[in-house]
């Protein structure tokens, strides 16, 4: 493992930011102040951060409806995200997109997405653009286990392989698509097994283990950057909340989430490892926890006290130019 102290601190900070962001959005949603549909990423942090730690702003990612974690990992600014979730004018998408559509193209974040399976074709396009632009950039599509069954995903795997695109497809298998188990909806043992059918490497990795994800991601990204073509990586992980905020989760066993939080929390695993091996100390982590708590507090207060859009905004930005 070749992470120095700064990188370790950065990885922990990003994962903690995502967790704190999601835990807080969960609380705030319950008060009724956050409108619309919200899908939380808590529990899956190691995947987003494990991949995005290898990426620069020139590299692109496409996300899903469960997009907050990917955004934060890719460097999207937290205050703008929170304002967006609250539907404020200073939101990162001017209050027009909300939780399901957060995007920041300058950071290489091509958007959360309301359409399951919409990301992979777009990421083929991002890979194609990088190829033409010869900038050495790569493109990463995050999809869920459910989205892995979508035709758009399968077609994109084939296209990326045929065009030898610098693309990485990350299947975040959190066990469910809404209320349906991935053991039922995915026709083979592992999603990554499908890679063989499309002529690319397929790897399964423990998505609770940041270090394992980081390593596998690094190899696939390096390969893509060097012109070696696409990969499919399956992160096996878990979500700590319901499919959406408000989901009663009756399809889960009563103590499932409680047990998962004890045995499979990527943040705890990270902390245990770095402390055990003396890579970081408790103070390092405590300082980050405190700092992040303040950042999230600020973001929420800032969002709540920000202006909503006004009526003139309704018809702006439909086109670049429309006579």
């Amino acid at each position: 493992m070749n992470l120095n102290e700064t990188q370790l601190l950065q990885a922990y900070r990003k994962m903690r930011q995502i967790r704190a962001f999601e835990d807080r959005v969960h609380e705030e949603f319950a008060t009724g102040e956050i409108p619309g549909f919200v899908h939380l990423y808590a529990g899956e942090e190691a995947s987003a951060v494990g991949f995005c730690m290898h990426l620069t702003d020139e590299d692109r990612i496409a996300s899903t409806h469960r997009g907050h974690g990917h955004c934060i990992a890719k460097g999207v600014e937290i205050n703008g995200m929170m304002s967006e979730i609250y539907g404020r004018r200073n939101g990162i998408c001017a209050g027009k997109g909300g939780s399901m559509h957060i995007a920041d193209l300058e950071k290489g974040m091509m958007g959360a997405n309301g359409i399951v399976g919409a990301g992979p074709p777009l990421i083929c396009g991002a890979g194609l653009a990088a190829k033409f632009q010869k900038n050495g950039a790569v493109a990463v599509a995050f999809v869920g286990d459910g989205a892995s069954n979508q035709g758009t995903t399968m077609e994109s795997l084939n296209l990326a392989s045929v065009w030898n695109l610098p693309c990485i497809f990350v299947a975040e298998n959190n066990g469910y698509a809404e209320a349906t188990s991935s053991t039922w909806s995915v026709s083979c043992e592992n999603i990554a097994d499908r890679a063989a059918a499309f002529g690319m490497p397929g790897v399964v990795v423990d998505g609770h283990d940041f270090f394992a994800v980081y390593e596998v991601a690094g190899e696939a990204i390096k390969r893509a950057r060097e012109g070696g073509g696409p990969s499919l990586i399956e992160c096996k992980l878990n979500r700590f909340y319901g499919h959406f905020e408000g989901d009663a989760q009756k399809y889960r066993l009563k103590d499932e989430v409680k047990n998962l939080k004890q045995s499979n929390d990527c943040l705890k695993k990270f902390a245990d490892k770095v402390l055990d091996q003396g890579l970081l100390n408790k103070k390092h982590l405590a300082e980050i926890d405190e700092l992040v708590a303040e950042e999230i507090d600020f973001a929420v207060n800032h969002a709540k006290s920000s202006e909503k859009p006004n009526s003139a905004d309704l018809l702006t930005d439909v086109y670049v130019n429309y006579p």
Binding site: E178, A179, T180, S181, W184, S185, K250, Y251, L253, E256
Partner: peptide
């Protein structure tokens, strides 16, 4: 239906 393949209801 919801719950296909899952351990809950």
């Amino acid at each position: 239906i919801g719950g296909s393949g899952a351990k809950g209801e």
